[in-house]
Structure formats: structure tokens, C-alpha cells
Design a protein around this nucleic acid. Structure first.
Lengths: 246, 246
DNA sequence: TTCGTTTTGTTCATTTTGTTCACGGGCACT
DNA sequence: AGTGCCCGTGAACAAAATGAACAAAACGAA
């Protein structure tokens, strides 16, 4: 029911880069624009410029990369928090003091990256932010939000299920092949299904089916609902992306 | 003397509880004090009291449990962020709007728990906070910090267990999903409703609807009233904070 | 007060869940 | 090859959650 505006403009995330060294700002700009879904809407080389551009451009995200011996960078973050509540910030600084990090975290910075910048890490953070923002938009549409949704948002969608070498590390009791089958089954159906039905569909036991479905629920990939009747209600699983609204 | 006295006051984390219902505040106070390492230094039942106590007690952590239709609870969080930068906050509210959650996250709330409160979840959060604080102190001593340290802090040390589904420990006969549905129904309507109406709204039986509503009344989250007519009066339930008729 | 009416509060059969644990297949190491 | 160990699987079982049915309760009307 909520599809008021922002059909096209929302597909991009507007980024304001704040960096006192123009050369580095340029490097960062190029890098950001390579990541799909992001668009650099402005560059500022000091706090004053940054405030003006914040006012004018209303970016979704600020890459706050200004040198701070615990001063202007954090000040700017406070300014954003007070005057631009819809704007997020990723800190990129050389400040190694724990105090600065502390303040940034308490001010709700999305992430805090240390110089020298590792570009892979920046990319990963940007993609996490994109996921974060998608999730926010998705939840604005859905009428009901639960604790689990909030937990995912607060965790910054950090993908702890992927080990450092990129291979998905699975917990005990979860086999990759079976997981693939179950995932495929749940995605191929529109309506929700009980663990029992899915089990029969694939040819495994209800126990196993249930184990994998619950695992997927824990990941937040699918969601569970209840179907009431006589006796204990049936737990139905459904893929999260299924558009059920009109 | 089996146990020697606690060495220093600094080993405790001082908690200020902010909750408009004194009974629930008391329940929370007892619960917090059972967790080792925490000490409740004060209780406030409205925003004014809270500000005074923040000034006087300088708590490490605020349990911000005030009802907010996007107003006073978040206002207080902003106040804390502006005037008490060393203080953290955990939000505990019934607000199910994504906007409130968004603001809380952007204001750097440590966690956001939804009412009705699951105590195991609160405990888990408190322990995560304790770990977070220990980590902060440890890092203050060390001369240099790295990206990895920051990542751990930002993740809220959530590596302990899978969040939100460790062990909900709801009483027998209460299912989390059904509870969510009933809670959402009761919060989504302004006027009180009978158990029967709510049952039909969700698609469950009156028995079940009643069971959950009474559970919520027992928690003090909602309240019951009587509506008279012919025959036995009808029990109407309404969210406790929705009554502005005074 | 007594009766008819309407809703509550509770019990219990029913159906499904959630968990445990023996089995057996595969992998690594000898 | 042989052997031992680890781990995913599913049958069986105990526990849980629900709704139908019913007795008791609380009210207005007479």
C-alpha cells in the first residue's frame, strides 16, 4: 500500500565524499562510481563545504574522510546527526585513538574504516550499506516488523556466515547439497509450505527438512508463519521476497 | 567469608532505568540486578526525571523503556547523545514503526528490544554490552588499535550466539509468532477490542486470542476494561499507552 | 429475587512441533 | 585395504499449541 514516490531516484544511493586531500577525494570518487547502485553527488574538501552540500544535495550517505585529531571529523558527524537525520555516515580516518572510534560508534556511524584504505574492505562496506538500505525500504512497506528484523538491521547485515576465503561456512548438521535443494524448493513456490510438504517434495524426512528451513529462517532468508486449525498450528515457510502486497 | 568484597566501584556497570510504568520498572530493576556486573543506580518514570538523574548519576547505560509514538523516547535519546556522550542506551519499546527503529539505530542505540520483553533476550543484550564495555576499556590501555578491533566493536560483539533465537523461554502455551500477531493487532488499533474481535482479525480462535491477551495483561503491557450490555459484560483490551483520555 | 441472555474461563482431544539418538555412509589416516 | 572417527539423516517419542465444547459467571429485565 505504500508506494508513494521515488521509483527511479531511489535506485541510486547518493554519496557525498568529504576528504581534505583533493587527489584522494578524486580517487575515492572513481572507486565509488564503479560500484553499482552508488552515485557520487558531491565532493567537499572541508567542513564548511560539507555542510553546504549536505543542505543542497541531501545525500543518503556521507563518506567522512576528513583528517581529525579528534576534532572536525567528529564535529561534522554530530552536525549530520542533528540536522540531517536521514543521512548515514561511514568514517574513513587515520585516527587511531579509541576515543574517536567510540564517539563515532555512539553517533551511529555505519562503519569506521582506518587509513590506509583497503579498497576491498570499502567495497564490502558499501555493499553492506546498500543491503541495509534495501532492508529499510522493504520494512517500510511491510506492515509488521519483528525483533528479528531489528536484529538484522543493527548487525549492519554483516555476513558472518561467510568465512574469510569466501566459502560459506555451514554449521554442524547442515550439508551444502541438501541446503541447495531446500532453498531451491522454497524459492520455486509462491505460497508458503509446511516442513512436511517440502520434505515430501524433495524426498527427505520432515526432521531434516525442518532443520534446514529453520536454519534459513535464522539467516533471515525465509520467514515462518503459522497456519491455524484444529490441533497445534502448522508452521509454514515462505521466501521473504514474495510480494504479497497490492 | 566465601566471597571477598567487590574490589572497586568501577567493576560495576551503572544502569539507569527509564520506564513510565513503575511496576514494570520495578520488575526490570530486579532482573537487571540479578545479572552479575550490573547495578541499577536509578529509576526514572518520565523524561524530566530522567534528565535530572542523568546529570546526577552519570550512568554508563540507560535502559530506555518509555512509550514513544515517535516522540519522547527518541527525544530523550537525542538528549543523551548531545549532553552525555559517554552514556549508552538500550531501547525497550512497543513502537513497531520502522521509523522509530531507524532513528534509534542512527542515534547509536546499542540495541533495540521490542515489548513484550523476552527476558532471556534482555540478558543476552546486557552481557553483550558488558563485553563491549570491557573491550572499550581494554583498547583504551593499548597504544594502537586496528581495523579488526573496530569491526568487533561495531558488530556489538554479537558473535556469542545466533541472535534472537537462542532460547526465548516464553511460558507454556505462548508461541512467539502468535504473540507477535496479537501484539501487533492490539497496537495497531486505537480503540479497545474484545478477544473475539481480535481472534477474527488474526484468524485464530477466541480461546487462543484470550490466552495471549491475558498474558499481555499479566505483563502489564496492555490493560483490560469492561463493556456493559445485556448479558455478561464484555472484556475489552487496549494498549496501555493509547489512553490519552485524561 | 429470579430468570434469560451473553460472555467468560477452563478442560481436553487433536494435531503438529521439536528433540533425541541409533544408524550408516564417507573420509582420513594408517 | 583396513579401521576408526566424524557427521548428516530420519524414525520414534515427548512436549506443545490450538480450538471445540461446556460449565460457571455477570449482567439487565421483570
Amino acid at each position: 500500500m505504500v508506494h508513494p514516490e521515488q521509483p527511479a531516484a531511489e535506485t541510486f544511493i547518493d554519496v557525498l565524499i568529504v576528504e581534505d586531500d583533493p587527489r584522494i577525494a578524486e580517487i575515492n570518487r572513481r572507486f565509488i562510481e564503479q560500484i553499482t547502485g552508488f552515485r557520487v553527488c558531491g565532493v567537499a574538501t572541508d567542513a564548511e563545504q560539507a555542510k553546504l552540500q549536505l543542505e543542497r544535495l541531501e545525500p543518503h550517505l556521507v563518506l567522512l574522510d576528513i583528517y581529525l585529531p579528534a576534532s572536525s571529523g567528529l564535529e561534522l558527524l554530530y552536525h549530520i546527526r542533528q540536522h540531517h537525520r536521514g543521512t548515514d555516515a561511514i568514517m574513513i580516518t587515520a585516527a587511531r585513538e579509541i576515543e574517536a572510534v567510540q564517539e563515532a560508534i555512539r553517533s551511529g556511524a555505519f562503519d569506521y574504516l582506518m587509513k590506509p584504505l583497503v579498497f576491498d574492505r570499502l567495497k564490502e562496506t558499501m555493499q553492506r550499506y546498500a543491503a541495509f538500505r534495501r532492508e529499510l525500504i522493504r520494512l517500510s512497506d511491510s506492515s509488521s516488523i519483528g525483533q528479528h528484523d531489528i536484529d538484522r538491521l543493527l548487525s549492519r547485515l554483516s555476513d558472518s556466515t561467510v568465512s574469510s576465503d569466501g566459502a560459506p561456512m555451514l554449521p554442524k548438521g547442515i550439508d551444502k547439497l541438501t541446503l541447495d535443494k531446500v532453498s531451491q524448493a522454497i524459492y520455486s513456490i509462491k505460497d508458503g509450505m509446511s516442513a512436511d510438504k517440502i520434505a515430501k517434495l524433495i524426498g527427505i524426512s520432515r526432521s531434516t527438512s525442518r532443520r534446514y528451513l529453520e536454519y534459513l529462517v535464522g539467516l533471515g532468508v525465509i520467514e515462518a508463519d503459522l497456519s491455524y486449525g484444529i490441533g497445534r498450528p502448522e508452521r509454514v515457510y515462505r521466501s521473504r521476497n514474495a510480494d504479497d502486497r497490492h
